[in-house]
Amino acid sequence: MPTLEFEGKTYEVDEEGYLMDWSQWNEGLAGVMAKEDGLELTEAHWDVIRFLREYFEKYQIAPMIKILTKELAKKYGKEKGNTKYLYELYPAGPAKQACRYAGLPKPTGCV
């Protein structure tokens, strides 16, 4: 089983680096993952991560992308409340990259 080291603690992750147990997550981990991808986490990135975690706690699943973009639109206005902007934040795909940083399992299915 692959692992991730952070501040002396070891976290189990799957083959693609998704945390095995979402409840073990902490903010520092997101930073570590982003750093590996060469990404700098801005406030906008954090908004996405926090929203994902809130939603997940309520529904045990990541939200539909549309819900996420709408949330961003509320805060940053229409020109940033769209999928394009999400892809700018998370080039590997919001559902997948952002979920990983947020410690959530990867959404599977025909998506």
């Binding site: 309520k58 529904y59 045990q60 699943i61 939200p63 539909m64 819900i67 959404p107 599977t108 299915g109 025909c110 998506v111």
Partner: peptide, 14 residues
């Protein structure tokens, strides 16, 4: 009940 693993609450809110 679905490939994504959405439970009834998640489905309804979506």
């Amino acid at each position: 009940g679905n490939n994504l693993g959405m439970n009834p609450d998640a489905l309804k809110s979506t």
